Structures are given as structure tokens and as C-alpha cells.
Amino acid sequence: MLTAVVWSSEKAIILGLGVYNGLFYKRGDGTNWDSDWTPLGGTFTYPPVAISWGPDRIDILGIGINGNLYTKYYDSGQWSGVWESLGGFCSSPPAVASWGIGRYDVFVIGPGGHMYHKAYRGAEGQRWDAEWYNLSGIFSSPPAVVSWGQDRIDMFGLGTNNTMYHRAWLGDRWSPTWDNIGGVFRGSPVVTSWASDRLDVFALGSDYALWHKAWLGSTWSDWKSLGGIFESEPFAILSDFNRIEVLAIGTDDHLWHNSLIASTWGDWDKLGGSFNSAPVAVSMSAKVLDVFGLGLDNAMYHHTWSGDTWAETSSWDRLGGVFATHL
């Protein structure tokens, strides 16, 4: 698994784990990318995640080989020093969401299969919470989280029965229990939000098809199969207001793409390539995607999707490197 984030006006960073589980990155604007991969050090058991909560700021979080969560940040042109340990004994990759400048929230699965939470409160001058908060539940998947606005976070995870569960931070308290929202899945949940009171949740079903469910403001929709047969986790991203792009690797190793525009799904488009990792993407402008994946040679590849067609060329750009694969 890779991670990518937009961190300034039309600037993105893509990060991946090398074959010895150290972290490397490249920066670019969609057309021009750093010529070399830059090491950030560390040794991680899961691919780290990245988030940007303000201009020229990137925060990276990853699970070290001792199970602790570690963080490093980029601020106004330079990286922080050594990786800072945030403690914990984590058994899943982290999931992260931000609802404002100087604020983000991290979730992991920890001892007992429970979900745990810790917040960075830089805007309040408090930095990190001193302790991890146990949100209970027993989960078989990593968490998925999203924020649709100020003081709101929604979390999802698969229980030991592979059914989806949901809980939320409501501004001044956690919702009282984990709600069972149904389904039976083989893959971890993915969630996006394009407006207040709107959530779109995705996961691979036991039939290897992609399934979708939406929170519509006062009620959940039914689970709906979007079809396809996939071997990777899906990746979902907003490319415009009320437009969601979904990407996944099919059993043919090609990248496949679909779009939800308002309430209408399109057909699956084969975007080509041959990949052995789940894709990631960033959107630096409306209806434009920069898509990344690891090829069969474990190198990083990149392409740009613009509205309804590939931009400029039909070939994938090879960004090089040699990376660990996580389908």
C-alpha cells in the first residue's frame, strides 16, 4: 500500500515502503516529479499514512517494528528531526482524519482487537493527547475514518464476523455504541465524504465485487453491488463536489475505475497497466486524478486521468524505485 497527499497548491507527495521497510518519497505537480526517491528513514511493519491539514504542512504516521506509532512532519520547507514515538501497541495500519487547521485524529487497532484513538491538538497548543483512548469493539480489519466538518469524525471497521460497524465523534462526545450497518466483507472499509451529513462507504464483498453504502443525512442506503471482480482493496477519492472516483486492481492485474456523479454510477473503465499493489490517487484540481501503483517490477508508476480521458498520453510514467508490495 502506498500513500499520497496534496500538501500545497498543485503540489503532491507520494510515499512508499522500500524492500527493507524504510520510507521513501517523491514530490511533484502531476507533470514534473523529483528525479530521485528521498529516504525518510524508519522501519515500518505497515505502510504509513500521510495527511495535510494546512498549506506547506505534511504529517506522516507509521507503525514501527515494536508496535508503536511514529510520526514525522514537513513544515514550511523542512522535515522534523527523528521519528517521534506516540506509544501504543498497534496491530493495524493507522487511519487519520483532520477537521481543521492544526488538528488531526489517529485511529488504530490495538490490544484485544479494540479500536484506539489519539488526537493532535496543535491549534490548541497541546500537541498530542497523553494517552490512547479505547473506543472498544473487536475488529478484524484496520479502521477507516473521515471528517465531514468541524468537530465531526466517522469511524468504520469490520467485526470478527466480517460485518461493518460504525461509530462517530459528535462534537462533544462519542456516539454511545458501535452500530452494525450490515454486509459481509473480505476487504477493509474505505470511506469518503463530499458534504456535511454525507458518507460513502466501500468494501470488497465475499464475492470479490465492490459494494457501496451511503449515509444520506438521516438514514443509510442499502448495500449495493457495483460489480467487478477485484484482488486489491479499493481506493476512493473526491475529484469534485458530489463526484467520487473509485479505483481497484482487477484479477487481470489492470487498474479499473468508476465514478459516482451525484447519485449515478458509471461503468467500469479499464485504465490499463499491470500492478501488484492497491492504487492510490490525489486530486490537485477538479475532475483530475494523479494515480499511482506498483508495477510487476515493484517500481512506481504514475498516470493522470482528466475528466473522461487520460491526459496527454496513454502510457504510464515509470517513477522508478523498488518497493514492498501490499495487495
Rank of each mutant, 00 (worst) to 15 (best):
G54Q: 12
G54C: 02
P55R: 05
D56Q: 13
D56V: 02
I60S: 01
I63H: 00
N68I: 09
N68H: 15
L69S: 07
L69Y: 02
Y70I: 09
Y70W: 13
T71Y: 15
T71P: 02
Y73A: 11
Y73W: 15
Y74C: 01
Y74H: 12
S76V: 13
G77I: 09
Q78V: 11
W79Y: 12
S80P: 07
G81I: 07
G81T: 14
W83T: 04
S85T: 13
L86M: 09
F89D: 14
S92P: 00
P94Y: 03
A95K: 00
A95R: 05
A95P: 04
S98Q: 08
W99S: 09
G100N: 09
G102L: 06
R103E: 12
Y104E: 02
Y104R: 01
V108A: 04
I109Y: 08
P111F: 10
G112L: 04
G113I: 03
G113Y: 01
H114R: 07
Y116W: 13
H117S: 10
H117C: 06
K118M: 11
K118H: 09
R121A: 03
G125I: 03
W128D: 03
E131L: 10
E131G: 00
E131R: 09
Y133P: 00
Y133A: 13
N134T: 04
F139M: 06
S141A: 06
P142T: 08
A144M: 08
S147Q: 06
G149S: 03
D151H: 11
D151S: 12
M155L: 15
G157T: 07
T160C: 00
T160I: 15
N161L: 12
N161F: 09
T163F: 02
T163H: 13
M164I: 12
R167S: 10
R167D: 05
R167Q: 12
W169S: 02
W169F: 10
L170D: 13
D172P: 00
R173H: 15
W178I: 06
G183L: 10
G183Q: 08
G183W: 08
G187L: 04
S188W: 11
V190A: 07
T192C: 10
T192N: 10
T192D: 08
S193H: 03
A195S: 12
D197W: 09
D197N: 14
R198S: 10
R198W: 10
F202S: 00
